[in-house]
Amino acid sequence: MKHTGNYGMMAEFDSPTTLVAAARQTYEAGYKRIDAYSPFPIEELAEAIGFHHNSVPLVVLIGGLLGCASGYLLQWWISTVSYPINVGGRPYHSWPAFIVVTFEMTILFSVLAAVFGMLALNGLPMPYHPVFNVPRFAFATRDRFFLMIFSSDPKYRGSETKAFLESLNPRSISEVPQ
């Protein structure tokens, strides 16, 4: 086990409004490797910590296209190659009949890609995470709002960062062990 230095430093706030304001100031002060935790989603927070882009939509799109293609090709192969049946004199390759299943497969694959893609991109499941070393972090699921600056941030200097976080008037500041 490596015990060199901290994972980061964490500040605790009372309300979503103060958290968003603090996150914005921290980002503007030049800290880029930061994260924030709250008991419920706050729309503005992602933007405040400079989180603009995630890859879930792309994963979903790829999943959807795969589902669409596989759904259509499966039916095309069954109806024209593997087991052709004459239905009411229609051509074997009758696309209108394939649309419903193709659509459903698109949705199914998109949804699966969304769920599992989201989990994978978040690195979940994650049995251990250093933030839980801070006892007060338990309140993040209730009524407290936390801002985190990771020690991997190039601007991170123990005492300097602590002084900066204090300037944001948090309820408490904790160092997060690895």
Binding site: P16, T17, V20, A21, R24, E44, L45
Partner: peptide
């Protein structure tokens, strides 16, 4: 106001 506006 949204959270961000109130904080500004």
């Amino acid at each position: 106001p949204t959270h961000s506006e109130a904080g500004a």
